[in-house]
C-alpha cells in the first residue's frame, strides 16, 4: 500500500508498470522532437536519414537553420523582451497585492480578492478578447476626443505585456503569499517599535524575507509569458512572439527548424531544472 506496509508483488509490479508507461508518455514527445532536430531530411518526421546540424546552422535555398533564420530569431528576441517586462510587472504588482491582502482588513476586501484570483479560472482566450475589446474601445475614444492615435491601445508589444500581466500578477501574488504566511509579524513590530516607518519595515524586513518567493515568482511568470499563446494571439501586432510564430509554422510550413527551436527550449528548461534540483539538494 505505502512504503511502510508490506505489499504484494502484483501490486508493486502493476504500479511500476503504470508509472513507467506514464513517464514514457510524458517524455516521448520531448525526446522525439529533440532527436529529429538532427535528422538530415526536410520532413519533420522519420525515416532517419543521417545526422546533420543543418537545422541549426545551414543557410541554403531549401534549408535555413535556426541561427540563420532572421524571422525566428526576431520572434525569440521579442518573446524574451515580452517575458522580461511581463515578469517584472507581475512580480511587483503580485508582491504588492500579497502584502495588501495579508496586512490589511478593509471594506470590500473579499470582493477585491475574488477578482484577484479570478484569472485562475478564466480561460486565457477570454482574457485575450476582453482586453482587446476594452483597449480598442479606449483607443477609439481617445482618438475621437483628442485626435491622437494612441498606439499603446492597439495590438502590439505593450498590449501583449499588459494582457499577460493581467493573469501573471495572480500567480505571482499566490506564490509570494505562500511564503508570507510563514512570516513572523513580531519582526515587523520590532522594527516599528524602533521607530521605522511602515514602508521602511516592509522594505527592510518583509521584502528580504520574501526574496526567494519573489525570485521564484519572477521565474514562473517569465516562463508563463514565454510559452503563452491563448491570450497573446489576440493582442499581438505585426511582430509575433515565438509561440505565435511556431503556431503558424506548424500549421502552414513545418520544417525541422521547428525541431531545432524545440530542442533548444527543451535543453534550456531541463538544464535550468536540474541546476535547481542540485542547488536544493545541497541546501538540505
Amino acid at each position: 500500500m505505502i512504503r511502510s506496509l508490506p505489499n504484494s508483488t502484483g501490486y508493486k509490479i502493476g504500479f511500476r508498470v503504470f508509472v513507467t508507461l506514464f513517464f514514457i508518455f510524458l517524455l516521448l514527445p520531448l525526446i522525439a522532437v529533440s532527436v529529429l532536430a538532427f535528422n538530415d531530411s526536410s520532413a519533420i518526421t522519420l525515416p532517419w536519414k543521417g545526422f546533420t546540424l543543418d537545422w541549426f546552422f545551414a543557410n541554403t535555398d531549401d534549408r535555413v537553420g535556426l541561427f540563420k533564420d532572421e524571422e525566428l530569431l526576431t520572434s525569440i528576441w521579442i518573446s524574451i523582451q515580452t517575458a522580461f517586462a511581463m515578469a517584472l510587472l507581475s512580480t511587483i504588482i503580485g508582491t504588492i497585492a500579497s502584502l495588501l491582502f495579508d496586512k490589511f482588513n478593509f471594506k470590500g476586501k473579499g470582493v477585491l480578492y475574488f477578482f484577484a484570483i479570478a484569472p485562475l479560472v478564466i480561460p486565457g482566450v477570454i482574457l485575450g478578447i476582453s482586453i482587446l475589446l476594452a483597449s480598442t474601445a479606449v483607443g477609439g475614444k481617445i482618438e475621437s476626443i483628442f485626435g491622437i492615435d494612441a498606439e499603446i491601445f492597439s495590438p502590439g508589444f505593450w498590449l501583449v505585456v499588459i494582457g499577460q500581466f493581467s493573469f501573471g500578477a495572480t500567480y505571482a501574488m499566490l506564490l509570494v503569499s505562500a511564503r508570507l504566511k510563514k512570516f513572523d509579524p513580531a519582526l515587523e513590530e520590532a522594527a516599528l517599535s524602533l521607530k521605522a516607518t511602515g514602508l521602511q519595515s516592509i522594505w527592510y524586513i518583509t521584502i528580504p524575507f520574501l526574496k526567494p518567493a519573489i525570485i521564484g515568482a519572477f521565474v514562473v511568470t517569465f516562463l508563463m509569458s514565454f510559452s503563452n499563446f491563448n491570450t497573446t494571439i489576440f493582442l499581438v501586432g505585426s511582430d509575433p512572439t515565438l509561440p505565435v510564430d511556431l503556431y503558424s509554422r506548424i500549421k502552414f510550413s513545418s520544417t525541422p527548424v521547428l525541431n531545432a527551436v524545440s530542442f533548444m527550449i527543451v535543453l534550456a528548461v531541463s538544464t535550468f531544472a536540474f541546476i535547481n534540483l542540485i542547488i536544493n539538494r545541497n541546501k538540505k
Partner: peptide, 26 residues
C-alpha cells in the same frame, strides 16, 4: 521535476512533439 519539465517547455513545443510522434511517418 521530470513532471514539471513539459509544463515549463510550453504547450506549442509539446503539441508539436505529438505531431512528430503520431504522423503517418511519425
Amino acid at each position: 521535476l521530470l513532471l514539471l519539465i513539459p509544463l515549463w517547455i510550453g504547450e506549442l513545443v509539446t503539441i508539436y512533439g505529438w505531431v512528430t510522434l503520431l504522423g503517418d511517418n511519425g
